[in-house]
Structures are given as structure tokens and as C-alpha cells.
Amino acid sequence: MTNLFLGNLKYWLYGLTLLGGAGVAEWRGYSFTSINEHQVAPKSVRDNPGAYRSHYSTYTRYSGGK
């Protein structure tokens, strides 16, 4: 068992770092997706939701369907 660890010390370090990183990322809910824009919305959004223009509000669609 000692040889398993010492003989592959670098592998263990790499693997445990990877597991730790993936675990923390999962724990914090990280994601590689960049679809979300972070900005500060004005307080008036609740009173006048139509006035707020988000990053995605200029969406134009090409109609699909078969």
C-alpha cells in the first residue's frame, strides 16, 4: 500500500488536486457556461418591469418548424 502511494506520488497529488477542484466547483455551483450577464438592475424594475432592458431583450427569432 505504501508503494502504491509513494510510487505514484505525483499521480496522487494530481488526482487529489483535480478531485478537490472539481468538488469545490461543484459545491459552489460553478459552471463554464457564459450565458449569464451580471449587472446591477435599478430598484425601479419591480415597479416598471417593461422599462428594464436586459442583455437578451433584443432577441429576434427566425421561425422554425418543419
Binding site: E37, Y52, R61
Partner: peptide, 26 residues
Amino acid sequence: WMYLDMSLINTETGQAWDFGREVSYY
């Protein structure tokens, strides 16, 4: 089809996450 332009907004800090998704079914 329907396009949902949404924002998740923190009431205290005003921090907002904007996102949009199209839903369609034919």
C-alpha cells in the same frame, strides 16, 4: 414558439443575472 427574456434580481443588492431562452414545440 415563445421567447422568455428573464432576469434573476437580488432585491437587496440589485445584482442581476440576465438570460433568455426560446421554447418551441411543433
